[in-house]
Design a protein around this nucleic acid. Sequence first.
DNA 1: ATAAGGTTTAACCATTTGGTTAACAAAGAT
DNA 2: ATCTTTGTTAACCAAATGGTTAAACCTTAT
Lengths: 202, 202
Amino acid sequence: MKAKHENTEAEILEAAKSIFQQKGMAGSRMQEIADKAGINKAMLHYYFRSKQMLFEAVFKNAFKLLAPQLKKILDEDTDLFDKIRGFSNSYISFVIKHPYLPNFIIQELNKNPDFIDRLRAGKDFPNIRKFKLQVENNVARGVIKPISGEQLFINIMSLNILPFIASPLFKGFLDASDKEYQALMKQRKTEVAEFIINSIRL
Amino acid sequence: MKAKHENTEAEILEAAKSIFQQKGMAGSRMQEIADKAGINKAMLHYYFRSKQMLFEAVFKNAFKLLAPQLKKILDEDTDLFDKIRGFSNSYISFVIKHPYLPNFIIQELNKNPDFIDRLRAGKDFPNIRKFKLQVENNVARGVIKPISGEQLFINIMSLNILPFIASPLFKGFLDASDKEYQALMKQRKTEVAEFIINSIRL
DNA sequence: ATAAGGTTTAACCATTTGGTTAACAAAGAT
DNA sequence: ATCTTTGTTAACCAAATGGTTAAACCTTAT
């Protein structure tokens, strides 16, 4: 074997992802990432030069995972109602796999809004154009009440994303245990889509 | 005058609020807070002992500002639909005054979920019981479709809060300028409430 | 006036932290 | 075999950072 670790770079990225997504850029320590990867701290710099560059690698990877989720709702060619149901359903599965990811992206984007420009340059950046047309078409055909694609998109995202991002706050207000809150989220898996569809259906 | 600054403690809190809410606990520097307050760094420790205690003072103040907003929807005695309209309308004004506050609370609660227990001890902690009864009553009277108070509460919060928390992300997806996004938010001031009411009204 | 009290500051301190270096190890190339 | 390249480590470094201290300052009470 050439290396003690099979794929050091990937192991660093995995550890960095875990630490960065839980503690954010400012709250994460290079030493902690190295420890988690079971690797000498100098290796982080050997492979990624600086904390900033390691962070950006993690961030881009995270965004690459999230983008396809959004593409489902923005670019697919399915019926609008099915789309809403499909997204709400699959987003929850996604969050279970990557609990810290959406919040991580939103937070670091808040602290560094110009990241979005660099992301937009990437080919797989989600675009709302097609979704807008679909909504306009459904409005014109009298299938749904008048609403702009932007507002509907924001509504769908909000109803699906915030319950996970703000779970400690909601757990507090609802006085719900982890288990109870999880049950609420499971229930939402179908209920959210119907909530949205009920609102716009004519 | 006894002091160079009229009310040093308040000035520190104001500066700390500004820095902490923008950069979070981990990303904030005591020196930066002192500079912003135009005050020697030692004063921060003189009045608040440690960064942690200064942070908790800021956090409690922030929560004290947010709680009454939620009380409006949870405890007031107005009609359900008016409540939804009233909250959506007033929340946006609140966010304009305190742009970083809701995100700040959600973030720091995520990093420190046991904060919520300490907050719950306070007298003015919002409680959903009354709202649940109101929703159940409206369902029973056939005014709205069947929905649990919890889910409706989560929906109202999500639709109102996330668009501000995730504004850089949404601006990116919608390819909207600051001005355009602000216009969308203004439009939501009334539209969100109708979106919710449309969904549940029988 | 001056003693006493809280308030403020500059200088200082110990620790943490991101980053570097020089030496070492392992594998392939010659 | 040994030279070269790549990967890895322990030790180190300078800067940043939260926190402390001792002296100075200012106001009020005596």
